[in-house]
C-alpha cells in the first residue's frame, strides 16, 4: 500500500518542474487506480525503485505539451532528442525529490526515457498503479506510480 506522503513526494517533484522551469504551475486531476499496464503518451521518463518499495514511477507526456513547455523555457530546438531530454529532466527531478525525502530506504535508479508507439514500459503483472493526471495549460500528462 502506498502512503500519502510517498505519493506527495512524487507529485511535488513533477509539479515543481512546471512551476520553476516554465514559471507556470500545473494542476492535478483526480487520481485513480488502474489494474494492468497504463497507456503512455509519446514520451515517458521512468525511474525504477527498489528497497523499501519495489516498482516504477514514470512521467508520460504528449509531444504537444512538451513542445509548449520547451517554448516556455525559451528553447528553440523541438527535435525528438530534445523531447527525450525534457522528459528525462522531469524524471530526474522526481528522482531527486524522492532521494531527498526517502533517503536510503529507497534505491532509486538513474532515469531512463522511452518514446515511440507502444514502448515497453516495465510493469509487474497484477500490480495496480496510481495514475495522477498532470494538467498544464490545455494539455494533460500522467504521473504513474506503480509500487508494491
Amino acid at each position: 500500500m502506498l502512503y500519502e506522503q510517498e505519493l506527495k513526494t512524487f507529485v511535488e517533484g513533477t509539479t515543481n518542474f512546471f512551476e520553476v522551469a516554465a514559471q507556470q504551475p500545473a494542476t492535478l486531476g483526480s487520481p485513480y487506480l488502474l489494474e494492468g499496464t497504463p497507456a503512455v503518451h509519446e514520451y515517458t521518463g521512468v525511474i525504477t525503485i527498489s528497497g523499501k518499495r519495489e516498482g516504477v514511477v514514470y512521467f508520460t507526456a504528449p509531444k504537444a505539451m512538451l513542445t509548449v513547455l520547451l517554448m516556455k523555457m525559451q528553447e528553440n530546438d523541438f527535435s525528438h532528442e530534445t523531447m527525450r531530454d525534457l522528459v528525462g529532466e522531469v524524471a530526474n527531478t522526481i528522482s531527486g525529490n524522492a532521494r531527498r525525502d526517502f533517503g536510503r530506504d529507497f534505491v532509486i535508479s538513474v532515469p531512463s526515457v522511452l518514446s515511440g508507439e507502444k514502448p515497453d514500459v516495465p510493469h509487474k503483472p497484477g500490480q495496480r498503479s496510481f495514475i495522477i493526471p498532470i494538467n498544464w495549460r490545455s494539455h494533460s500528462a500522467k504521473l504513474v506510480v506503480s509500487l508494491s
Binding site: 520547451l70 523555457m73 525559451q74 530546438d77 531530454d85 525534457l86 529532466e89
Partner: peptide
C-alpha cells in the same frame, strides 16, 4: 548530459 540544460545555462 542534457542538451536542454547546457543551452539553458548558456542562454
Amino acid at each position: 548530459d542534457s542538451n536542454i540544460m547546457r543551452r539553458r545555462i548558456e542562454r
